[in-house]
Design a binder for these strands. Structure first.
Lengths: 338, 338
DNA sequence: GTGAAAGCGCTAACAG
DNA sequence: CTGTTAGCGCTTTCAC
């Protein structure tokens, strides 16, 4: 079986406690240089790796953090996980992944993960408007970092500046001369959805473009719903909008499909911009102008914050990430009806 | 702190071993019904949850399996993970996720995960043509299940019938009257790439359509490369192909973008079909005809197989998953030049 | 500087 | 039927 401290100790002719001291580089208790070297040699020779489980039991800390996501087949969440995994690995933590659907009423998930001592802390990625979440945090006794949304009662939240992102997108359209700008908004009550809507509204107002609520459609985050809403909107318009600002990548793409189907050329007749960049923005025709959001960074920062908390450091209770940049592509162009 | 066996035992007025017996439902040693009930009551009252770490140390089994993926921001891998997580959770296993890039030469990853006793077994998702992989398995002493490819020396591999999938796609095009069918193939040497190419070739041959190697372009798996290849191919063709069979979803989309840019209407002039379905197939214009592959199921079957191995059961050394079905959409249509 | 020993929470013989 | 006991591999006080 795997080599243990005892194996190393026997081979080096010392006690296991000495080996342990050397391995953990204990500052308070010095070990003779010769002994230390001998032990190090044996460790290398036997390729000894400490048993993480035994250590976890002894220290009551597993050096594992859990990440709970609402869904996996969503590039945004996947990027968050990637960022978290990277940061965790760098700090010597492992990442336990767990999945929590809104339907499966698994209100015990957090407590199970935690009380069985599997994880030292929790990263929870939230859907925009999952209210159940807050209740489920009750009675969980490890630090939790919330990702993708602010929750007042939680001690640390990492999220995007969606307000700013929306302004970037909207200003881009205004700069191009657009005045009739449709907003395909996320689900009502959603944290990011609301901020994006506000950012859109304020960007218009600040630049002297009248804000018309009739141009806003709450479509949620599904491509299909965005496609339908776009069709309805266009078919019932007296004066055709010249641009669409979609709250997410998927809804932007859904809108584009409808425009294609109706034979409306982009960006000649209508420009489209969405929030969240992805490789998929490049496979669309025309390639989609987006506001790139630092999703990986969000996962990374959250993991770093959690590990900081676990080492007793203080962390900011809110970490807000600014949008990376406007990715200028071919779906937006100057307004021809200006 | 968390309640322990001792807490329960004290409260119920019995020994901890008795509590342990009741909780693990030990068949060999019976416990008096009254005692059992009393213990169960206390367990519920104190909301006792066994300490997984202590159990893992004692049993030398963590009930955790690791999954190693080459990248996360890829819907195919995300679906595999989702399937694996689900199955693992159902069997009472946790999933430790780990990331292994081809660049970061982390040949120690597997051994580290395993030797520190974190995981009882490993699920390894392979890129199509990562040869390094096989060496890195050396010296890993837990069961490994390989996903997405067959490796002769490994005891259990779960993968798609890519050959059949390619035939489905190709036959579909042939049925529509196409004869000049381009194949955008995956990277040379790739397991799935080769099977798809073979499936394409054999489908043509079986139906009496001449196989012309000049119609095959090895473009790998990047949308951009597929887009470029498509452009070059079309521009240099004397006789225009009437259909494109792309080895993956992303390359199909890349080809579509090029066709759009060249003003070639789909499916009127050229039909396009790809392997691997995703929500993204529906946001393309036209919506993309695909062969849906059971990615989730692949993850699920792999996790089940691994857990079976861990419980000492025998499992098939190869689990081959058939393509789910052809998802007929708007990117393919009858050949007009027939 | 190094060793001895206790104990993290649990399971599994072995007694009784 | 139930209790006693010996560890799993490690860290950490306390001795010497």
């Amino acid at each position: 079986m795997a080599t243990t401290l005892a194996d190393v100790a026997r081979e080096a002719g010392v006690d296991i406690s000495t080996v342990s001291r050397v391995l953990r580089d204990d500052k308070t208790q010095r070990v003779a240089a010769r002994t230390r070297q001998r032990i190090l040699d044996v460790v290398k020779k036997l390729n000894y790796q400490p048993n993480a489980v035994a250590r976890a039991l002894r220290l009551a800390r597993s050096r594992t953090i859990g990440i709970v996501v609402p869904q996996l087949d969503n590039p945004v969440f996947a990027e968050i996980i990637a960022g978290a995994e990277h940061a965790a690995a760098e700090l010597g933590y492992s990442l336990l992944i767990s999945h929590r659907t809104r339907s499966s009423d698994d209100s015990d998930l957090f407590r199970r993960l935690v009380n069985t001592n599997r994880v030292d802390g929790l990263l929870v990625v939230s859907f925009d408007e999952d209210m159940q979440l807050i209740q489920d945090f009750q009675g969980v006794e490890v630090p939790i970092v919330v990702i993708n949304r602010k929750i007042e009662s939680m001690s640390c939240c990492v999220y995007h500046n969606s307000y700013k992102a929306a302004q970037l997108a909207t200003n881009h359209l205004i700069d191009l001369g657009h005045r009739q700008i449709v907003h395909l908004a996320g689900r009502g009550g959603g944290f990011n959805a609301r901020l994006r809507w506000n950012g859109y509204r304020d960007a218009l107002t600040l630049r002297g473009v009248p804000y018309d609520e009739a141009l806003v459609r709450t479509v949620g985050y599904a491509a299909e719903d965005a496609a339908t809403a776009t069709r309805v909107l266009i078919e019932n318009s007296n004066v055709l909008p010249t641009a669409i600002f979609a709250a997410t990548f998927l809804t932007a793409a859904g809108a584009m499909r409808s425009l294609h189907e109706m034979g409306i050329p982009m960006p000649d007749e209508i420009s489209v911009v969405g929030i969240h960049d992805a490789e998929f923005a490049l496979i669309l025709y025309p390639t989609l102008t987006t506001v790139r959001m630092p999703n990986r960074e969000m996962g990374r920062r959250a993991a770093l914050a959690l590990c900081d908390i676990l080492s007793g450091k203080n962390v900011d209770s809110e970490i807000v990430l600014e949008p990376e940049q406007l990715m200028l592509r071919n779906s937006t162009g100057p307004c021809r009806q200006g």
